[in-house]
């Protein structure tokens, strides 16, 4: 176990926007086939952490290794090759509004993996079914869908290429509890059946309990706690306790 190279390993990653220091030395390890959930308040840098791993943002310093290979110093070509391993569900959906729903889902297959359109169309419809949407939805444009439906389409797009590593940025935010559970099952399925490694951000504790193998909590730009999901409610960490029970009073300040 300890000799295996971790799928994702972040060491002392820092990132500031101007004066504002967002990531303050992030350390994080995710092993192959593991599902890690990151919890933490809004604006604490969870999305920024994901974007640094994906290479969409360049950290100011620190090391990010994927499969034991340093990524922060990669050139464009190596980076392009690496992207093929990733799938990402963006917090805001980030669907291409000029394309139909099925074209969105099939985009990575057609453009990235050079699959022919018919085959990709079939896969897109299958993914659409998996996220609980009707086939006819495929011919609508993203603007014609509700927020929750957009999120599910975005999820379908993220998993359509069967990526090795999938990032979910608040996958269940804005969904009703039942649909949230469908999505939780789907995420667990991706990890268990496809052997993917998942890194999920969520505020939704029931979702975290369901999909996580490990949980890490971010606060003021650092990972202040991590451990197996079984220990989450027994963490003896006052920050974690305050967050998971949603208490207004505690060590986490109300105006960060």
């Amino acid at each position: 176990m300890s000799t295996k190279t971790p799928k994702i390993e972040m060491k002392d990653v820092r990132k500031a926007f101007g004066e504002k220091c967002v990531l303050n030395g992030i350390d994080l390890t995710v092993n192959k086939g593991e599902s890690l959930v990151i919890i933490g308040g809004s604006g604490t840098g969870k999305s920024v952490t994901l974007k640094c791993v994906l290479g969409l943002m360049k950290p100011d310093s620190g090391s990010i290794m994927i499969d034991g290979v340093e990524t922060t110093t990669m050139n464009q070509k190596e980076r392009d090759a690496l992207m093929g391993k990733f799938g990402m569900l963006f917090q805001g959906g980030a669907l291409f509004d000029s394309m139909k729903v099925w074209e969105n889902i099939a985009f990575g297959l057609i453009q990235g993996k050079k699959m022919n359109a018919d085959e990709a169309h079939d896969i897109a419809l299958e993914k659409l079914r998996q996220v609980g949407l009707a086939q006819q939805t495929g011919n609508l444009f993203p603007a014609e869908l509700s927020g929750g439906m957009q999120k599910r389409v975005s999820l379908a797009r993220a998993i359509a290429t069967n990526p090795e590593i999938i990032f979910f940025d608040e996958p269940t935010t804005g969904l009703d509890p039942i649909m949230a559970d469908v999505i939780n099952d789907l995420i667990s399925e991706c990890v268990k059946d496809l052997g993917a490694t998942a890194l999920t951000i969520t505020h939704d504790m029931s979702s975290a309990r369901k999909i996580a193998d490990h949980v890490a909590m971010i606060y003021e730009g650092q990972m202040i706690w991590d451990g197996p999901v079984g220990q989450l409610y027994d963490s003896k960490n006052s920050y974690v306790e305050q967050f998971i029970h949603g208490r207004a009073d505690g060590p986490i300040s109300k105006h960060s």
Partner: peptide, 21 residues
């Protein structure tokens, strides 16, 4: 708009170069 709604980031994660596309 594609930039602020992260559609450009989405392009990159789907292995498409936004400069070319």
């Amino acid at each position: 708009t594609m930039r602020v709604t992260e559609q450009i980031d989405a392009l990159i994660t789907l292995s498409v170069n936004p400069f070319k596309y």
